[in-house]
Each structure stands twice: as C-alpha cells, then as structure tokens.
Write a protein that binds this DNA or RNA. Structure first.
Lengths: 206, 206
DNA sequence: TAGATTGTTAATCGATTAACAATC
DNA sequence: TAGATTGTTAATCGATTAACAATC
C-alpha cells in the first residue's frame, strides 16, 4: 500500500494543512471544509481537494472533513506519526535557540544530540542535552541511525559538514547556513535563510 | 524605466543567484556562465538565462557574465542596492540570535529597533540596540517609516502583532511564528518555520 | 577563424482551476 | 427533501526546457 508519486509542490503544502488543522482544533472546531482551509491558508479550495485526493478520500460530501481524522491521515502520509530523532550541529546563538525550541517535540521531532567544535561550548548543557565534540558525530549518527540533521554551523563550515553527513548516510538536512549545498540527489535539503526572504520581499517594495 | 511584471517564482530565485555570485567572487572568479551557475545551484542553464532575460541583457555571447556587473544588476533589480531599516519584534532566544546576526547588514538590511513586551527584557542591550516596549512600536515604525519587520514573537501573539503592523503601513513581514498570517494581499509575508521543513522532508524518508 | 555562450522562440511539461455529478 | 461539499475530469494557465541564430 505504498503512496503514489506526488509532486514536491503538493508535499510542501501538506504540513501547512496539518498546521491549520491543529489551529482549528484549538479553536474548538471538529469539522472543516476545503473552503474554510482555503480561505485561511490563501489557497483555492479546488487545490486543497486535489492535493488530498492524491492520497485518498478523507471527506464527506455535504459536511467536509473531520479535523482529527484528517490530521491523523496527514501525519501518516508525511511520516510524522512517529518520532524522528534529529541531531543539531552548531550551537551558536541560533543553534542555542533551536536547542531550546519546544515546537520540534510537539510535531514529531526529537533533538537527541548537539555538536559543536568550539572548546568553550563542548560539555555545556542545553535543556537535557550536552554539547559534544564534532569528532563524536560519526559515532553518534551511526549508533542512533540518524537520518535527519539540523545544520546551524558557520557558512564556511557548512559544505564540509554536509559532505560528512552524506557519507554517514544522513538523508535530510535542515540547513540554516546561507549557502546552496552540493549534495547527491537522494539527500534532501530544506533551506532556511532570512536574508533570502528579505531580499525577495524587497523586490516588491518601492 | 520600471521593471516588467515577473512571476514570483522567478523573483524568489534571484537572491540565490546573487548569493552564488558573491560566493564565486570570493573564490577569485571574475566571470561565470549560466552553465556554471546552473550546476552549482541545481537549476537548468536555460532557466537562469531566461530569468535574467526578464530584466535585461547582462551577458556576452561566448564568454558569459561578469560577476561584479551581474551582482550589481541583481542588487538593483531586487532593490537591495540600498540599505533597508528593519525592526525586530520578539527578543526571545531566537530573536536574540537574529539581533546578533551579522549577515543582515552585509546584505542590505539594518536592524534599527528591537521590541518585546516582557519587563525582564525591556531595557536590555543587544549589540548596539536597546530592547523597547511594544507600546513604542507604533511611534518608531511611523517615525522611521519602517516597511520591513521581522516577527519572532510567540505564536499566540503573532496574528495580533501582524494586524498592528499592517495598520502601521508595514509592507513586508519575515515571520518566524508557526502560523499562517491573515494579512491583506498588498502585504508580503515570508515564512520561516523549521518544523514545516522537517515535515516535508520526512515524507521522503522511509 | 573556431569555439563558446548568450538571449529568445516555440514546444513541452506540469500545476491550477472551473465545473459538476455524486452523495452525504 | 434541499443544501452543501466532496472527488474528479477536462480545460486553462503558467513555468520549464530544448534548440538555435546571433555574436563575442
């Protein structure tokens, strides 16, 4: 019962649907519709129905979607109905903030190891985790079979570390360093760069 | 001499081109080609030439693009050939990291004001800036005519603050809160949410 | 000149939307 | 039943790419 091949733009919207469902649930709603989701998310209702239809029939004509049920389905589809262990590499200001962020755990991701190569940081504790030397990285990734890593190292180090991660079999990198990483196509990279965002918005100003 | 209407997907790639040009320049290169950029960025060379062609003719047949010149053109197109003043709202761990980030200034964005409503944070200094009460927000945004804001407040507060910003005439919001903001279409929002990234990558694992 | 690479056109490919039968 | 909303099809819209004349 494997899922069909669905385009990346569709997959990228599913987490937004999931997040909105959680939001509506907190508002006390039990049922929603493609129209409501569309209005709240700024999409068209047809797009939402079509996106969902790639994976099954989750609604009822006339009434819409049961929020709890659709959440469950989306979690299953996205593989976040399980807990993913994640390593965080680079514990500067940003890494520190990420290490303290509670939102990961609630959404299916557990930070299980922190790494940095600065002697002043190694051994320090953030939350329940102790910062380890990057020389320990290979051992930990292998032992814990980590497949996802958050990269928050300085830009000069990012490509090198990424190569090491690829070597170790890591398959998904959440990259905060402002650089396009060169990795094989079977390794996914999601880029987070505030400057890119500000620059593309600046185009529309003036 | 106003620019033509160009699709958003094109605009979103321009900052990546700019960043890669800076990178190549640091490597000591003076000239590049659509092929080289394509290979490094993972796009097709045709796409890069087409994207640039919406704005002018910046290359030379046979030789390619002068890196310094193309950078200059891209900065002009994106309106980052000037310095944009930006306010940062919310100085928790993440806001603190952003306030200390040097990358903004290098790329055309200057943080000029920090806001938070927690009494323990107000008055504290980060870099050269002092954290102000959010009651000061309206005055500062108006006085300095701020059009761009970075939002790093807790998710519960984000929509309310966004509405205030819209009211004040802010036209671009870099939003770190994990929520789809409801703002008028003339206000741009760029979303940064690590969980969304991890969830969409998780789909491809297993 | 020979080789390389641009800018652009036309074709292809893919994503979005309008519309509606099915049905709750 | 009447009203509402789904799931899906076909049409539309838009983005990407292949190919090549122009030309450095």
């Amino acid at each position: 019962m494997s899922e069909p091949a669905v385009s990346e733009v569709v997959i990228d919207r599913l987490p937004l649907y999931l997040r909105m469902l959680q939001f509506l649930e907190k508002e006390g709603k039990q049922v929603t519709s493609s129209q409501e989701l569309a209005k709240r998310l700024g999409f068209s209702s047809a797009q939402i129905r079509k996106d969902l239809s790639y994976f099954g029939e989750f609604g009822k004509q006339g009434t819409g979607y049961n929020i709890a049920f659709l959440q469950k389905q989306l979690r299953r589809i996205l593989h976040v109905d399980q807990m993913w262990d994640v390593a965080l590499i680079g514990v500067g200001d940003l890494g520190h903030a990420l290490a303290n962020y509670q939102g990961f755990l609630e959404q299916g991701f557990r930070l299980v190891a922190l790494f940095d190569n600065a002697p002043t940081k190694i051994g320090r504790t953030i939350g329940s985790l102790t910062v380890q030397e990057t020389t320990e990285l290979a051992r930990v990734v292998r032992e814990r079979k980590l497949e996802m890593v958050i990269l928050a190292v300085p830009v000069e180090a990012a490509q090198k570390v990424a190569e090491q991660l690829v070597e170790l079999g890591v398959r998904a990198i959440l990259n905060y360093a402002p650089i396009t990483l060169n990795v094989p196509p079977n390794v996914r990279v999601y880029y987070i760069d505030p400057v890119i965002g500000l620059q593309s918005m600046a185009y529309y100003l003036k």
